[in-house]
Amino acid sequence: MIRLLIADDHALVRESLKRLFSGTRDIVVAGEASSGDRVLELLRPGGFDLLLLDISMPGLSGEELMRRVHRRLPELPILVLSMYDDPRVVRRKLKAGAAGYLTKDSEPEVLLTAVRKVAVGGRFIGQDLAERVAFEAQSELAALQFERLSRRERQVLRLLVEGHCLRDIAAKLVISHKTVSSHKARLMQKLEVDSDAELIRLAFRNRI
């Protein structure tokens, strides 16, 4: 049996969640809280298998509350159920210690699946959110990689994207064909790409 502590400052949300879980045989709502302070009070005696947490309640911030929960009960998994679907918010909550993240418009079956998975030590993010978080992480990595390019490498890349061949680039930059080839090889190494097509796609995705 999974014993839930529901933390949400909206009574209607808590009631809706309790009705949902009452229709299951393996999940029971063992407590509910409308503030971070109340969450910490209820956790003192223990008795919960999962904290289902809204991150925007009165009092403590969601991240601070998660840190305090982890200090007190490091083994208690936290599943965030929030109205926010910004990938940056999701990543911050996961970094702060959440084992899962769902938005409040998720389908009931998805929430039940997430509760069951996170309660036994797994991790869960809604599919759409997971894709957006992964895409943003890739974009940030690519941005860091582009920052490593020298001024000349950036010039060569921009001209490649515009469709110029190496000989034309050499003429435009008044450098040798061999030097252009060297710049191209280094920038491809820094950007971790293996082909011209992949290089162009990466440049377009990052608006180079």
Rank of each mutant, 00 (worst) to 15 (best):
L112R: 10
F204S: 07
G122K: 09
E41W: 04
R186S: 11
R167W: 07
R186V: 03
S61G: 15
L53F: 07
D26F: 08
D37P: 00
L52H: 08
S82E: 07
D26Y: 11
L144T: 11
E41H: 06
R88L: 10
S34E: 14
S61F: 03
Y84E: 12
R68S: 00
G47A: 09
Q155G: 01
F48W: 10
R154V: 05
Q138A: 13
I125C: 06
R207H: 14
G163E: 08
G31P: 07
T103H: 11
E153L: 02
E131N: 12
K117Q: 14
E153F: 06
D85W: 06
E32H: 04
S22A: 15
E64Q: 09
Q189F: 06
H70E: 05
A99L: 13
F204N: 09
Q189C: 00
E75R: 15
V161L: 15
S176Y: 05
Q127C: 02
S150A: 04
L65C: 04
H164N: 07
V118W: 07
I125W: 10
Q127D: 14
R116E: 03
D85M: 03
T179Y: 10
S106P: 02
F146A: 02
L94W: 11
D196M: 14
A143S: 14
G46M: 11
G121D: 05
L166N: 13
K172T: 09
G121K: 11
E75W: 12
L65E: 01
V80K: 09
A171E: 15
R91S: 12
G126L: 02
Q155D: 13
L17Q: 05
A11R: 15
A11F: 09
T113K: 14
R68K: 13
V156P: 08
D37K: 06
V115Q: 07
A137D: 10
R92G: 02
M188H: 04
E63N: 03
L60F: 05
V69S: 05
R72W: 08
R91N: 06
A203P: 10
G97D: 03
